[in-house]
Design a protein around this nucleic acid. Structure first.
Lengths: 188, 188
DNA sequence: CTCAAGGTGTACTGATCGGTAAACTTTTGC
DNA sequence: GCAAAAGTTTACCGATCAGTACACCTTGAG
C-alpha cells in the first residue's frame, strides 16, 4: 500500500469513527466503508487503538487548520478574532455531519488516564488553550492566561450544548458572553 | 425480585456504566458486578438501552439533588449561589471516581438524535438550564435567560476540561469567569 | 522471460456481544 | 399443605468483536 493509500485509509476511518463512535465501529465496518482489507489495515497499525490515535492526530491537524484559517478570514484584529471564533463554531455546528467534538467523544469512551487516545484528546485541548492565550496576549488583555482559559471554557461548553440540544444557539450565547469577557479584559 | 432489588441493580449498574462507559460495559460484566443474573435483568428491562435510560434517570435525580443541596449549603443569596456552584463542581472534580458528566459521555456514545439515551441527556441539560435561569431571576439579573445560559456554558466547559486534563483548575477558572458575568448582569 | 518481495483478500481464531429457552427454586394465595 | 405464580440459574443462541494464518496476486529487478 502506497503511503497516500495509508493517508486515505486514515481519512476515511476518521469519517466513520466520528459519525458512529469508537467502540460502535468494528474493524469489519471499517473494512466495508474504506474498501481496505483488514490485513492491509493491520499492516500499518498494530491495533485498533493505534489507528484511532492516527485518526485523532489527523483530526487535530484538520480541525485547527480549518478553525484558525476561518477565524483569520472573518476578523482582522486579535480582539475581533475572539468573537469570530464563535461565528466559525456556529458554522461548524450547522453541518449535517456535526457530531460534537471528536476529542471530547474520545475522552468519554476511553476513560483510562494513561490511554494514548485520551492523551491525544488532552493534547488537542492544550494546543487550543495555547492558541487562545496567544490571541489574548496579542489583543492586549490584562491577564492573557485567564482570558484564554475563559474563552476555551465557553467554546467547550458551546460544543457540548449544541451537540446535545441540536441547536446552534450556544454559539451565539458564547459569542455574547465572550464580548463581555473581552470588554472586561481590555478595559482600563 | 423485590422493587428495591431493582433499584439496587440500577444503582450498581450506574457505577459500572459511569466508570467504564456504555459500549465498553457488556451485560456479562454487569451480571458479575451487580450479582444479578442476566435473566433477572431482562425481566425488568427489555433491552440494554432501557436499562441505560433507567440508569440515566437515576443519575439525573442523584446529581441534581446533590448539586442543588450543596449549593444551598455553601451560599445563602442567589448571587452567591452562582459562585458556590463552581465550588461544588470543584469538590466533584476531586473525587477519585470522577469521570466527567455521564450525560455528555452518553451523548458521545449515542449520536443518533432520536435515541432515548440521547434524549435523556438533553433533558438533563435542559433542567439544569432552567435551574440556573431561575437562580438568575432570583438574583435580579437584567437578562436571566442570558445569564443562565452563560453559567451553564461555563459549567459544561469546566466539566469537559477538568475531565480531559485531570485538573480541578477549570472549576476555579469558571468561578472567576462567573464573577465577571454576574457583576455585568447585576450592575446598574 | 523468471523470480523474489511485498501488498492483498479469504477465511478463520477464540472471545465476547446482546438476548433467550427452559429447568429449577422460592414466594404467595388459599 | 399445596399448587400456581414469580424469580433465578444454567446453558445456550447467532452475531460480532479484535486480530491472524495463509494462499494469492501484483510488481519491479535482472
Amino acid at each position: 500500500m502506497r503511503p497516500n493509500k495509508k493517508d486515505e485509509l486514515v481519512r476515511k476511518a476518521l469519517t466513520v469513527f466520528y459519525r458512529d463512535g469508537f467502540h460502535a465501529t468494528g474493524m469489519d465496518k471499517l473494512v466495508a466503508e474504506t474498501g481496505v482489507s483488514k490485513t492491509s489495515i493491520y499492516k500499518h497499525f498494530r491495533t485498533k487503538e493505534e489507528l484511532i490515535v492516527a485518526v485523532l492526530k489527523l483530526r487535530d491537524e484538520n480541525f485547527r487548520a480549518w478553525f484558525e484559517a476561518r477565524v483569520d478570514e472573518l476578523a482582522d484584529t486579535p480582539a475581533d478574532k475572539f468573537l469570530a471564533a464563535f461565528d466559525a463554531l456556529g458554522e461548524w455546528f450547522e453541518e449535517d455531519s456535526y457530531r460534537g467534538c471528536m476529542f471530547i467523544n474520545a475522552g468519554a469512551e476511553y476513560q483510562c488516564k494513561d490511554d494514548p487516545i485520551r492523551m491525544e484528546a488532552a493534547h488537542h485541548k492544550q494546543v487550543l488553550l495555547d492558541y487562545f492565550t496567544d490571541l489574548a496576549r496579542q489583543a492586549g488583555a490584562r491577564d492573557p492566561e485567564a482570558l484564554g482559559c475563559q474563552i476555551l471554557l465557553l467554546k467547550e461548553g458551546a460544543i457540548v450544548m449544541s451537540s446535545l440540544m441540536g441547536t446552534t444557539k450556544p454559539a451565539c450565547d458564547a459569542k455574547d458572553t465572550a464580548r463581555i469577557l473581552l470588554d472586561h479584559a481590555l478595559k482600563g
